[in-house]
Amino acid sequence: MPGPIQSIERAAAVLRLLGSTDRPLGLNELAAALDLPRPTAHGIIRTLRDVGFVDQDVDSARYLLGAGLQELGRGGWDPHDLRAASMNWADSLAGSSGLAVQLGVVSFTAVRLVHHVFRPDGTPQRIRTGAEMPLHATALGKCLLAFAPVATPRTRDLDLHRWTGRTCVTVAALDAHLATARHRGWASDAGEFEAGTGGAAAPLRASGGVVVGAIGVAGPVEELFGLGGELRPKLAEQLLGASREISAVLASTP
């Protein structure tokens, strides 16, 4: 095993020093306190700033601990913050697509709905916020498996229960679906959980590109997909547009 990496030790020392006072520190002060050459200190502090662990005060050019550090210990996005940040765009997606819209996050081995907008056609519908659905058989779930591999179980550890004739019940079939999803940027469900009801879902990314949830549309399979089984192009555009707009909101919130 290699020994400790000096630049990481030095970066940790810089963070400790900044955390030891409420006062922003200047570069010279930092270099002197840690007994580092000025260019070395400058390189470290700029890298820390670029990843969001250090902020630089615009007026004084001095440094302080960054908002990105608080985020680290928070254990991901609060699901209700996620809903609040998405609400406008979720409504707008339901309005433009004419379909129901759902937001999902990983909850152990399932996807949990954190938001639900009705299909805007006046038909009676039940609000499904809080419901859990299988990862392998839904668009939201497959989207999270494809784009948030760290937060989700490995496909071979999932219980690939057969919900309909179309459910992926082998690891190979599921992995192929996930590869397609990664390639196109969205995941789909052609009636794999509930026969006749399908969906499409795209990832929601917070700062650093980390996937924190998924947004999807749901409705009758024939409304979502063309005869060849491809998602209708307009719908794909609207879905990806909403995921991009929400991700921009998420990325701009520390």
Partner: peptide
């Protein structure tokens, strides 16, 4: 006016 959610 379109219903987006209902709580029973």
């Amino acid at each position: 006016w379109h219903r987006a959610a209902a709580w029973e």
